[in-house]
């Protein structure tokens, strides 16, 4: 596969390592009185859609950016890729 890196253009997926569901961005940061149920859901519950999926890829053999890649898991079509830090900040 080719990943459309937002800064470097198309790069072969071999340069990346895969993590999974981009919902991992949404850590329930609530300081010391965090809700264990929320952490349970965050840690263990994932969607595994047959279709469009937002997922995390790390450009390990590249610029070390974490990307949020939107991919159709049925066709492998890639609909977009953004810097995860931009996504987290609400910029993308």
């Amino acid at each position: 596969m080719l990943i459309p890196h937002p800064l470097l253009g198309l790069r072969d997926a071999q340069e990346f390592t895969y993590l999974g569901d981009a919902s991992l961005l949404n850590r329930p940061d609530t300081g010391t009185d965090a809700d264990p149920e929320a952490f349970f859901a965050y840690t263990h519950l994932r969607d595994n859609p047959a279709g469009v999926h937002r997922e995390l890829w790390f450009h390990e053999q590249g610029d070390r950016s974490w990307l949020v890649v939107t991919r159709n898991t049925l066709t492998h079509e890639i609909l977009g890729a953004e810097l995860a830090s931009d996504v987290k900040r609400g910029l993308a």
Partner: peptide, 12 residues
Amino acid sequence: RQMEFARQCLWP
């Protein structure tokens, strides 16, 4: 990798 994840994805 995990520290970069924390830096970029959790607390940018």
